[in-house]
C-alpha cells in the first residue's frame, strides 16, 4: 500500500493524574489518504483531541510515529517543522476563542501569510479578499472586527484562515458543534466543496455521528485512548462491532412524532 498523506502509528501519550500515569493515547494508528476525510469519533475523554494535538505537535507524544507526506514529524527540528506547518492547518470548535476579538478580518487572514512569509505585504489584502470569496463571505466583511461577526461567519473566517497557506490537510476539531442548525449545513457543504475543488484532506474530530455520516468517508472510533473500530462510514454505521460505536450510534437524537 502506498504511503498515505498522513500515517500515524504506535502513538502513545500519558498524563500524570494524582501521582500516576494515565494513558490518553495507548498505541494509536491511523491513515488519511490525500483528498479524503477520516472522522475521529468518540465520547469526551476518549483521547481524540489529544491525538489531534499530538499530530500537530501542539502536545509532544511519548512514543510513536507521525508521518506527513513522507516526513516523520516527531523529533523534527524546529526549522524543518516550520516548513511543514503551512501544509497542515487546524479549525477549532469555538471560533470566538480562536481569534483576537479586536483584530479585523483582514488582519486575521493576513496573519498566516505574514508568519509563514508566504506573500509580500502588498498582496495580503487581495489574498484575504480571495479567501473570503472562497468561503462565500461578502468582501464587505474584510474590515469588520471578529467580535462583530455571527457564529457562522466567524467559523467561515476560521476556515478561510486555515486555507490561507494552501494546506494539504486540515484538522477540524468539532467545527460545527457550536453553530446554529440553520448555518451548520452550509458550513459542512462548504467543507465538502473545498475538498472537491482543491483535493484537501480532513481529519474531522466529532462526537456526533450524524455529522460524521454527512461529511466523512471513513471513521475511526476512539475509546480510552485506543481506536476500537475503523472502516468506511457505510460499513461501520451499518454493522457497528465495538460497544463504543454502538453507544455513539444509539445516542444520535431521533425525531419522535407520536
Amino acid at each position: 500500500m502506498a504511503e498515505a498523506l498522513l500515517e500515524v502509528s504506535g502513538l502513545r501519550k500519558s498524563f500524570w493524574r494524582a501521582g500516576r500515569a494515565v494513558a490518553a493515547l495507548d498505541g494509536v494508528a491511523l491513515r488519511v489518504p490525500a483528498g479524503t476525510t477520516l472522522a475521529l469519533a468518540g465520547a469526551s475523554g476518549s483521547g481524540k483531541s489529544t491525538l489531534a494535538r499530538c499530530i500537530l505537535r501542539l502536545t509532544e507524544p511519548d512514543a510513536g510515529s507521525v508521518r506527513f507526506a513522507g516526513t516523520e514529524l516527531l523529533g523534527l527540528a524546529p526549522a524543518a517543522l516550520r516548513a511543514i506547518r503551512p501544509r497542515v492547518q487546524m479549525v477549532f470548535q469555538d471560533p470566538a476563542a480562536a481569534f483576537n476579538p479586536r483584530a479585523s478580518v483582514a488582519r486575521i487572514l493576513a496573519d498566516p501569510l505574514r508568519v509563514n512569509a508566504l506573500a509580500p505585504r502588498g498582496e495580503w489584502r487581495a489574498r484575504a479578499l480571495a479567501l473570503l470569496d472562497m468561503v462565500r463571505l461578502p468582501a464587505a466583511l474584510i474590515d469588520r472586527r471578529s467580535d462583530e461577526l455571527s457564529g457562522g461567519q466567524r467559523q467561515r473566517v476560521a476556515i478561510a484562515r486555515a486555507l490561507a497557506t494552501n494546506p494539504e490537510l486540515v484538522v477540524l476539531d468539532e467545527p460545527v458543534s457550536a453553530l446554529d442548525v440553520s448555518v451548520r449545513n452550509a458550513v459542512l457543504n462548504l467543507l465538502l466543496d473545498l475538498q472537491q475543488r482543491s483535493g484537501l484532506a480532513y481529519l474531522l474530530i466529532a462526537h456526533d455521528l450524524a455529522v460524521v455520516r454527512a461529511v466523512a468517508g471513513a471513521v475511526a472510533v476512539m475509546e480510552a485512548g485506543r481506536i476500537v473500530e475503523h472502516g468506511t462510514v457505510a460499513e461501520v454505521f451499518a454493522r457497528p462491532q465495538a460497544v463504543a460505536t454502538q453507544r455513539l450510534l444509539a445516542a444520535v437524537p431521533r425525531l419522535v412524532v407520536g
Partner: peptide, 12 residues
C-alpha cells in the same frame, strides 16, 4: 429546521 436536520438516515 426539519429539512436541515442531520441523523443516521442522512445520505452519505
Amino acid at each position: 429546521l426539519l429539512a436541515a436536520r442531520l441523523d443516521l438516515d442522512t445520505r452519505i
